[in-house]
Design a protein around this nucleic acid. Sequence first.
RNA 1: GGCGGCUUAGCCAAGCGGUAAGGCACGGGUCUGCAACACCCUUAUCACCGGUUCGAAUCCGGUAGCCGCCUCCA
Length: 467
Amino acid sequence: MAIQIYNTLTRRKEPFVPLEEGKVKMYVCGPTVYNYIHIGNARPAIVYDTVRRYLQYKGFDVKYVSNFTDVDDKIIKAANELGEEVSELTERFIKAYFEDITALGCKKADVHPRVTEHMDEIIEFIKVLINKGYAYESQGDVYFRTRKFEGYGKLSHQSIDDLKVGARIEAGEKKEDPLDFALWKAAKPGEIHWSSPWGEGRPGWHIECSVMARAHLGDTIDIHAGGQDLTFPHHENEIAQSESYTGKLFARYWMHNGYINIDNEKMSKSLGNFVLVHDIIQKIDPQVLRFFMLSVHYRHPINFSEELIESARSGLERLRTAYSNLQHRLKSTTNLAENSELYLEKIDELKKQFEKEMDDDFNTANGISVLFELARTSNTYVNETNTDEKVLKAFIETFEVLSGVLGIKLAVEMEILDEEIEKLIEERNIARKNRDFKRADEIRDQLLSMNIILEDTRQGTRWKRGS
RNA sequence: GGCGGCUUAGCCAAGCGGUAAGGCACGGGUCUGCAACACCCUUAUCACCGGUUCGAAUCCGGUAGCCGCCUCCA
C-alpha cells in the first residue's frame, strides 16, 4: 500500500508516487534568521523531519533541502537595531537554529541553501522572467505580473479576482496591478545590496525559494512543505515564478502544517506570548516537546500549555519505562519461555499497524498509540515468569525502530552511579532481606532526595533519575 | 465579501458509511514489607436541527459557536 499524502493542490489525499522511482526530492521552507526560532517554527521542522524519516524507513532515497532566508526587511531592521552586520546576525542565528532543532531531534537537511549564496542565480532567474514577459522593472524594483500566469490561485484555490478584493493598495504604487509582487527590491540608502541590471538592490522574498529549489532539486520537485500560512501568498507566488520560468509543474505534492496556539490564543508579538525554543528547552525536555507535537495530526492546530506538556511528559515517560523494563529484564531472562511465537507475532502485527497509520498521511498520533500498545504488551511480557532473550530483543528493536521513525529517543542516559550510592542500594537490599524496613525506607528516602528513584522488581532493584 | 478549517469522555486526541482507538487525570482491584513500576476493571452515542441510507461521529442541507488565510508570519 502506497503512502497517502494530503495534497493542498488537489485538497485530497493522494497515493505518493515520486517522479523518479525510489527517490524523493523534498523542499521545506526554512526560517528567516533574525531571532531564535519559536515553537511555531519548530513544528514544521519536527513534522517534516518525521516525514523524511518515514520515507527513508520505507526505503526511499530522500534529498531534503531546507533554506535559510538570510536577507530581508526584518533581518535588516534587527541588524540595525543591534548595530550588527547583517551577516554577523544571520550567522549567529543560523548557529542557534541548528542547536535548537538538533535538541528537538531533527536531522540536518542534505542542503541548507542561503539566499545570499544564490544571488547570481536569482538575478538570472528574474532576467528570464522579464524576457518572457512575466515580470517588469519599475523604478529599480522588479515585479511579477500575476495576471500573466494562468494558474495563479490554484494552490490557495482562489480566483485572481477574489484575491484582488482583499489586496492592499500600497502608497506610491509602482505595480501595474495590486496583486503583483516584488522579485527584486531597490536598496534604500545604507542597506545591504547587490548589483543587478536594475540597479543596486536585493531579492524579494518569494523568488529565493523558486531559485534554490530548482538549483538543488531541479525543475520539478516531489514534496514542497511549510506552514499553513505560507500557502498564500508565498507558495502561490513560488508556483507562479517557477512554472513561468520552466513551463513545468513546480511541485507535485504540497504539504502544509497547522498552527500552534498558546493557551488557546494565537501566538503573536502583540500578545507577547511568543515562546522561543531556545528558552523553553531550558525548562522542558525537548524530546517531550517533540513527542507532544507529534501526538496531534500535523494538519490540525495544536494548543500549547503547561498542562498539556505535562500530560505529554507522563506519556513519554511511560514509553521510556517500558523500554527500560525490557533492558532490565534482559539481565535476568530465563530463556525458558514457551509463548515466544505468540509474542513475536504480536510484535510483527504492531509494526505493520504502525506502518499502516503512518502510510495514511503520516498519522503520527496513531503511530504513537501503536507504541503505547507495544508498551502494554511488552510490560506484560516482562512480568512473565519466563522470558526469551529473542523476544525481549525483538521488543527492544521494534521500540527503537518505530520511535526512531518519530525521532524520539526512549533510551535514557544511564550514567554510572558513584560507589557510595551503589553501596547504599546494596545496604538497603540487605536490610530488606533482614526485614529491617525502617532502615530500608530511610535509604530509599535518602536516595530520593538525591533524585534517585528505586524500584524493586522480582528481578532485583533498579533505579532511575527523577524528572 | 471570497476561500478554508474546527466542535468526539474531566483534559488531550484518533476516526474518512458498518455500530466510539490511544494517552493524561480520577476511582476500584492485583502485585509489593510499604512504595514505585506494571497489569486488570470502570468512564462518551460524537455542538444542535433536518435529510440520504438497511446502517452516519463519518455523506448532504441548515443553525450556533470558535478559528485560520485573503497583508509580514511556521
